[in-house]
């Protein structure tokens, strides 16, 4: 595929970068990324990836846009209140860049549908809002060998990590088990600074583009912690756990399971 004159202009600031160039921009245009959650994190990740010209972006969300989302979920607006979030994000991303094909998946991810949904994508992005889905996405990506860029936010704090199955750590290597229900509050209960998902989502989008381009060092075997109040960015080491239940030497999770519904209330 050759770029049109319009595309050369649109992507000129990328193409001028030696690390990207025409070749890299073609990689971006040919890439397929699935984003789980079209909320605080999914909006900025999808927005920047759409701007960058990622060829196909799947947005997975079965919720509808509410007024309380608009403090941070920048792909939605008063005009899309009540609309499915994946659909609302598709409108926004396609208005920004008609080159991008946005696929809407209006389902909740579960052990039955996830492998079929991620199989056609190169990279998965986690921007979901609960522990059971996070562990499900991790396990599915490890089993399917899909790179996963994970981000999480609460109040003033964010966490980002890049999971490269077969090479580095996974989410279960990092946190062995989800906390019991009720111990860790949700954003709904505890609040979140509106700009926080923007910072964390932009970091996730940068990780995705680096993976697509094959440039730089991914955040594999590391966890980046951002604290907006203290303005601290810290990285800690995350070794692959030889006893990990899904990616360790003798894994006990060899097929997907749904963790109890009680966790969904977190």
């Amino acid at each position: 595929m050759d770029f049109t004159e319009e595309q050369l202009q649109r992507y000129s600031r990328h193409i001028i970068l030696p690390e990207v160039g025409g070749k890299g921009q073609k990689k971006i245009s040919g890439s397929r990324v699935l984003i789980a959650g079209a909320g605080g994190l999914g909006c900025p990740v999808g927005y920047y990836l759409a701007a960058a010209g990622v060829g196909t972006i799947a947005m997975v969300d079965n919720d509808v846009v509410e007024l309380s989302n608009l403090q941070r979920q920048i792909a939605h607006s008063v005009r899309t209140l009540g609309m499915n979030k994946a659909e609302s994000a598709k409108n926004t991303f396609e208005a920004l860049n008609p080159d991008v094909n946005v696929v809407t998946i209006k389902e909740r991810l579960n052990s039955k549908n996830i492998l079929g949904l991620i199989k056609d994508y190169d990279i998965v992005v986690d921007g979901t809002d609960n522990f059971p889905t996070r562990y499900l996405i991790n396990d599915a990506c490890v089993l399917a060998g899909k790179p996963l860029v994970s981000g999480a936010i609460l109040r003033f704090e964010g966490q980002v990590t890049t999971i490269l199955p077969g090479e580095g750590h996974c989410y279960r290597c990092l946190f062995e088990e989800p906390p019991p229900p009720g111990l860790v509050p949700s954003c709904q209960e505890a609040g979140v600074l509106g700009v926080l998902p923007g910072v964390v989502g932009a970091l996730q989008a940068a990780e995705v583009l680096k993976l697509v381009l094959g440039k730089g060092k991914p955040l594999s075997n590391q966890l980046l912690i951002y604290d907006a109040l203290g303005v601290n960015f810290r990285k800690v080491k995350v070794p692959k756990n030889p006893d990990c239940k899904v990616c360790g030497k003798s894994p006990v999770i060899t097929e997907l399971i749904d963790i109890g519904e009680e966790y969904c209330s977190i």
Binding site: L41, F131, A152, Q159, P179, V184, I225, P239
Partner: peptide, 29 residues
């Protein structure tokens, strides 16, 4: 360094060390 890959709760800490406490968070909303 994650203490799970050292001596867990018995990992020694000395003056000048920096200890981080990092709980899992799940928000994406």
């Amino acid at each position: 360094e994650d203490i799970r890959f050292m001596s867990n709760e018995e990992t020694s800490v000395k003056d000048g060390d920096v200890v981080s406490i990092v709980p899992a968070i799940a928000g994406g909303c």
